[in-house]
Amino acid sequence: MNKLIKNRVMNRALALISLLFAFSFTSCEDVVNLDLETGETKLVIDAEIIWKKGTSGNEQTIKISKTAPYYNNSTPKVSGAQVRVENSNGDVFTFNETETGVYKCTNFVPVIDMEYKLFITAEGQSYTATEKLTSATPINKIEQKIVPDFGGEDVIELTFYYNDPVDQKNFYVTDYQSDFLIYPEYEITDDEFYNGNEISTRYSHEDDIKPGSIVKITHRGVSKNFFNYWKLILEASNSNPFSVPPGSIKGNILNTSDSGNYAFGYFRLCEADERSYVVQ
């Protein structure tokens, strides 16, 4: 089956560009710091409720931080926030701060297709977002084979398979993690042309995948709105780093105290199938 719509974060290319910049600066006698314009500080809310198949889904984590100037070596974490999630039955799940900027819940109850609402109060501002928990079909199998890449060299390619439900429109976000990746690589898929069929999705990483490598695949079912949001994020990440960046990509988190002072991030609830594959 042909590969579906796919967008990947080009970590290696961006890393190479960063390395070239580092070499250019170290080769000069004088250190040059560009006077970059600093925008308004925004809250960043990383609120993914992910229910991995085979688990109860009771342990969930939400992280809150702030945007920082380009030359900052760390991301400011936001402490002292009040964080809770309520479902459409009126059940309340409180997220307690376990370390600076990290809020955890140990009694969350995930229910497919149930609506949940996020409430956050941080630094005198109130934020909210609403989303449903979206199901994901399980991965049937993972295969590997040797294929030629664009340069003609043979590389290892992994393919995983899953059955798409016939009675609904489905959207998926998958990430790949491994020791040879600095950050996860993401791809997005929808069933526009493959509704109700077995879908196969391929993954390779030039010559970095080797026998013995462990690749963790996390395959999520997501809402259409989050799919479209993540598509914009990946398109911006894959764009020319020297071009003018697009306008701020806003998620579904609203500031009910001051609508103009929005937060970055997206409150999403996903069922997921996670598999770790040892490359042969």
Rank of each mutant, 00 (worst) to 15 (best):
I156K: 01
G196M: 03
K52Q: 08
P246Q: 04
T201E: 07
D113S: 14
A81K: 07
V166F: 11
K77Y: 02
K117F: 09
Y194D: 06
T159S: 06
E48M: 09
G247E: 14
K6W: 12
D113E: 15
S248H: 10
N238P: 06
F267W: 05
D35K: 08
S200A: 15
I199A: 05
Y172L: 01
R220V: 02
V109D: 00
E131R: 02
Y70H: 13
N228F: 06
N163C: 08
G90L: 06
D190G: 05
I209D: 00
Q125K: 12
N261K: 15
K6F: 15
F108G: 01
F180I: 12
F226R: 05
E37F: 08
N140P: 03
S126H: 11
E274A: 05
E131H: 10
S200K: 11
K224Y: 00
S24E: 13
K42E: 06
L43R: 01
Y71R: 08
D258I: 04
E185W: 02
D190L: 04
V109P: 00
Q144N: 15
V78Q: 00
E123R: 14
L43F: 02
D208F: 12
K63W: 07
S239Y: 09
P211R: 08
P110R: 02
Y127E: 04
D149W: 04
S18F: 13
E40Q: 07
I156C: 04
A81D: 07
P138H: 05
Y176H: 13
I139T: 03
R8T: 14
I249Q: 03
N170Y: 00
N11D: 15
I64M: 05
S223P: 00
I139C: 04
K141A: 09
A263P: 00
F227M: 02
S79Y: 07
H219K: 11
A236L: 06
Y277D: 03
T201Y: 03
F108E: 01
I214N: 11
Q144M: 13
S237I: 07
K52C: 04
Q125G: 07
P138E: 06
A47H: 03
T218Q: 02
R84V: 10
I214Q: 14
E37H: 04
M114K: 13
D30R: 15
P138T: 13
T159A: 05
T159Q: 04
P165T: 08
D167V: 06
V222G: 00
T134C: 07
I249M: 09
F226A: 03
T26V: 15
L254V: 09
I209Y: 01
G260S: 11
L19R: 14
N163I: 10
L14S: 05
F227C: 00
G221H: 02
F242D: 10
K3P: 08
T94F: 13
V147P: 00
I64C: 01
N140E: 11
L34I: 12
I188K: 00
N197F: 12
